[in-house]
């Protein structure tokens, strides 16, 4: 344990209508409703922010570690697909059981690189092992991360 353990803060506020305003370190962004089944929902939902964060963590984490190793990586893109245990529970459907938790998350990372495959594999493993989000979600749900390299 560090003597002054780092702590992160976020704050969200919602009025009668509209998305949540979220502040972190003095910066502001907005998040919509917790979950939506409407393709026309105007703001990204809280769930989508989580999935986006996982994707950014995987792609950004890999890119950052590859850069430190001076590997030639042109771009990294992560695609995420997730399922809930029972989305109907979120809607308070009478008679539905189980819960609305994330059941599975599949992350596919596409790496455009000319670097040696063994080096890429090493950075990939390092990325997963040191990612706060990947480490957290891997404990609680069926989380699968795979990658594919492209020239």
């Amino acid at each position: 344990m560090l003597p002054d353990e780092p702590t992160w803060h976020a704050r969200a506020a919602v009025g009668r209508r509209g998305p949540a305003a979220v502040w972190v370190r003095g910066r502001r962004f907005t998040i919509g409703v917790p979950l939506s089944f409407d393709i026309d929902e105007p703001d990204p939902t809280a769930l989508e922010h989580v999935l986006g964060a996982i994707a950014a963590d995987a792609a950004g984490g890999f890119a950052e570690r590859a850069r430190r190793r001076r590997l030639d990586v042109e771009s990294v893109e992560a695609a995420v697909e997730a399922k809930l245990d029972n989305p109907l529970t979120y809607l308070a459907v009478v008679g539905e059981e189980r819960n609305p938790a994330l059941k599975s998350v599949r992350v596919r990372v596409y790496i455009t690189t000319s670097a040696d495959q063994a080096a890429i594999e090493e950075v990939w493993r390092d990325t997963l092992a040191r990612s706060p989000l990947v480490s957290t979600f891997a404990r609680s749900l069926d989380l699968e991360l795979t990658y594919k390299t492209m020239l």
Partner: peptide, 13 residues
């Protein structure tokens, strides 16, 4: 709106 998982429950309600 009240949602039900099946019509039996809805008719009960």
């Amino acid at each position: 709106c009240v949602f039900y998982t099946n019509y039996d429950l809805q008719n009960d309600a």
